[in-house]
Design a protein around this nucleic acid. Structure first.
Length: 406
DNA sequence: TCTGGGGTCCTAGGACCC
DNA sequence: TCTGGGGTCCTAGGACCC
């Protein structure tokens, strides 16, 4: 059976957070379009999260990079203007884009808040596909007020690589025959899944461009890098057979973490943070109607050393209390008193659907009571806002760590 | 006023079983 | 005695993505 060639688009919003904040500000009557000045969307330095989340073209020209500290960015760009992000607004703009794209196909994979893959295989031939890409590009700009880059190709990898070519507001193709001229000439760091740990290893092997990587012996790369080596070889040669995953997927794990206002070195205070996180994580878990089989606590020390411990549960749970109790056990195992901690994280993994669980097998009166308590607390949170309801344990502590609204 | 927060997937070693 | 070896589960840590 001959395989039908897939037709894929990758849509990538240009400077998403910055563009969307620019639109919101203009809508509120602000005169200056922050896309036209040296500006970034940044975290909060007073909360020790002062990093660049998105940058304008002008800030980029000055060398400002996503992920660097605002302090570093200001050194490169002294007139830099910093604006706060608004996740709720971003979600809305992202949905607007999604709804527009639904007019072309319902096979859309939302890869992140500002990126989508579209399976357009029902459009016949490259010409038709390309003209649809231009149509989408124009319509998004006109109807939604921001620009996108669109990658046009026959698989997801090549579409994503293509959308990353020159920006902003561009449509690029990357068909198989264009790989040598458009992709192999690029530095190997541009290839998807080549990060900052792999890059120096490739440089040591005199592999500098994606083309250099593509010409390597496949088995040599597998011997050197294992599975990752095979993937690098396939990607550099434009091979990717993955499907556009358009069905709504349930999460495999749910986690929250918080950088503390200042480093702390007392277990009791870390426990209070864990209680807040347990509430947050289990609340989200219950919203998905899922149970967790693994609880994981992670810590970051003041000198940025990360470590974590995890534990498989005897019985899956979505109770705040159950998760909190296990989290405390894990903290006890791993925490050495006196160590200064910067970040505390709690996540649950190996999630299962509530409906797919054989209930009552292990459930008892105590569990049912806990579930009822959580249910009441959840509905109050839904009604009056997440931070409205607080646990008694937290109310009586002087160290209340207020978590951001979710 | 130096370094976020949310994820997924992979690896390697130890325990344990047959 | 000369110390198998495959398979699975669990855990800690790491790499990468946006």
């Amino acid at each position: 059976m001959e395989k039908v060639q897939k037709q894929i688009l990758h849509i990538d919003v240009n400077n998403a957070f910055l563009s969307w904040t620019a639109i919101d500000r203009l809508a509120q009557g602000e005169k200056i379009d922050i896309r036209e000045i040296e500006a970034v969307i940044g975290g909060d330095e007073t909360k020790r999260s002062g990093i660049v989340l998105a940058k304008s073209m002008k800030a980029k020209t000055k060398g400002v990079c996503t992920g660097e500290t605002l302090y570093q960015a200001r050194l490169k760009c002294p007139n830099l203007q910093v604006f706060k992000g608004d996740y709720k607004s971003y979600k809305k703009h992202s949905n607007d884009l999604y709804n527009l794209l639904l007019q072309y196909t319902d096979k859309i994979e939302r890869f992140s808040i500002d990126e989508c893959f579209l399976d357009m295989t029902h459009y016949l031939g490259n010409e038709e596909l390309l003209s649809k890409a231009y149509e989408i590009s124009k319509r998004v700009k006109k109807e939604l007020g921001f620009t996108v880059n669109i990658g046009v190709a026959h698989n997801k990898l090549l579409a994503k690589m293509a959308s990353d070519f020159t920006k902003p507001d561009r449509v690029h193709t990357l068909y198989e025959e264009e790989i040598p001229t458009k992709m192999w000439v690029l530095p190997v760091s541009e290839l998807l899944m080549i990060g900052k740990k792999t890059l120096p290893k490739l440089y040591n092997l005199k592999i500098k461009t994606i083309g250099d990587l593509a010409k390597q012996d496949k088995s040599f790369l597998i011997k050197k890098f294992g599975k990752h080596g095979l993937m690098m070889w396939e990607y550099s040669n434009g091979i990717d057979n993955s499907e556009v995953n358009y069905l709504e997927e349930k999460p495999k794990g749910i986690g929250n973490s918080v950088t503390l206002p200042s480093d702390i070195a007392e277990k009791e205070k870390i426990e209070k943070v864990l209680l807040s996180l347990a509430e947050q994580v289990s609340y989200r878990l219950r919203k998905y109607n899922m149970y967790a089989n693994v609880v994981n606590v992670s810590l970051r020390t003041k000198d940025f050393k990360d470590f974590s411990h995890q534990k498989k549960l005897i019985c899956a749970t979505a109770n705040t209390k159950d998760i909190y109790e296990v989290a405390k056990e894990l903290l006890n195992e791993m925490y050495k008193n006196g160590t200064f901690i910067r970040l505390v994280g709690l996540r649950v993994d190996k999630l299962v659907d509530k409906n797919e669980m054989q209930l009552s097998l292990f459930s008892n009166e105590k569990n049912e009571k806990q579930e009822k308590i959580d249910k009441v607390v959840d509905s109050l949170k839904d009604k009056y806002g997440y931070n409205f309801v607080t646990r008694a344990g937290k109310l009586h502590s002087e160290e209340v760590i207020k978590l951001k609204d979710i």
